[in-house]
């Protein structure tokens, strides 16, 4: 506890306060400067670029106003990319959350909510998370390989399929193949965060509930779920943001193909920028995506606001 300054020293304290504040701005300024230079200024520049038609190959550079955005509105490929991104996000985040929750409950139950999880369980959870996304894409590309990939072999062995499936060449399968890879990489980690949350729930609550005659389901429904909600929201927020922005996993696994069936917004924007070198239109795509993510994240920040205030 800090003591309130006495009347005699108030004047001096105010002087210290002021310089403390100045110190604060001074110490925080490198962070603001770097973020401004490498994150905020480029956003503004992208907005500016998106108002131009810019094709470096042909030496074209002209101001076209909102033309790129009008183009975007009638671009089927853009809407298809939106749908693909939405489908990928909803399916993978929902699956990750469910599987992660199940795994967390299982581990928590096995350790009776207190002890350490077994070492191998920790390893199995943390390894997929730590693996570079690019590597996980290569691992799964090999598993999905139609002729001598492990997946087709195993499915064939248990008689689930008769002919090999070319997972990544079939538009209907490819997006789901990408979802499975994403779930593999992130569900264990969702479990890890949820498990950390489970461990903060006081065990007395369960004992008290049992005394009152509550069954397992009632304990879960009225104690576990409500008390874990903040963590669930956090996992949901961060996983959604990652899934909406997904690039490297899908880009390396399928390159957006076959056709454009796995082309997410990030991949479409990236290809427009760096493969066809349309910097203006690509920037419009990127800006549109920024706006979508900004809208989503402000929604989420509202959800998280209570948390944020507690942390401050």
């Amino acid at each position: 506890m800090t003591e309130q300054p006495s009347t005699g020293t108030r004047q001096a304290t105010r002087a210290v306060r002021l310089s403390e504040r100045a110190w604060g701005y001074l110490l925080a300024s490198p962070a603001f400067l770097l973020v401004g230079l490498v994150a905020v200024a480029p956003i503004a520049a992208a907005l500016w670029l998106s108002l131009h038609r810019r094709l470096p190959v042909f030496g074209v550079e002209e101001f076209v106003g909102a033309w790129n955005y009008l183009q975007l509105w009638s671009d089927d490929r853009f809407w298809a990319a939106c749908r693909t991104t939405l489908y990928f996000t909803v399916l993978s985040v929902a699956t990750e959350l469910l599987l992660g929750f199940g795994l967390a409950l299982l581990l928590d139950g096995l350790t009776n909510g207190a002890g350490k999880s077994p070492r191998w369980a920790q390893v199995m959870i943390v390894v997929p998370w730590a693996i570079p996304t690019v590597v996980s894409a290569q691992i799964w590309a090999w598993l999905y390989q139609p002729d001598y990939g492990l997946l087709n072999y195993l499915l064939h062995r248990v008689n689930l399929i008769t002919a090999p499936i070319d997972w990544l060449a079939d538009p209907d399968w490819a997006i789901h193949a990408a979802v499975v890879m994403d779930v593999w990489k992130t569900a264990p980690f969702a479990a890890l965060l949820l498990l950390a949350g489970l461990k903060t729930i006081p065990r007395d609550l369960y004992a008290a509930a049992r005394v009152d005659g509550a069954g397992a389901w009632q304990q879960f429904r009225h104690i576990t779920l409500p008390l874990l909600m903040p963590v669930v929201v956090i996992v949901l927020v961060f996983r959604t943001m990652d899934a909406v922005r997904v690039f490297d996993a899908v880009y390396v696994l399928t390159g957006g193909g076959p056709g454009n069936s796995t082309e997410t917004l990030s991949i479409y924007a990236y290809k427009t920028l760096f493969q066809t070198l349309q910097f203006g239109y690509g920037s419009a795509l990127a800006t549109a995506m920024f706006l979508i993510v900004a809208a989503l994240s402000s929604l989420y920040l509202l959800l998280l606001r209570r948390h944020l205030q507690e942390a401050t």
Binding site: P42, S283, F290, S297, S298, L308, Q309, T312
Partner: peptide, 25 residues
């Protein structure tokens, strides 16, 4: 709180939105 909120928002930036100006920079 605003600064912390902005910090959180920055972590949600889609990298694709800054990639072309960053490349040019």
């Amino acid at each position: 709180p605003v600064i912390l909120g902005l910090v959180l928002a920055t972590s949600m930036f889609p990298p694709i939105a800054v990639i072309s100006p960053l490349y040019l920079l």
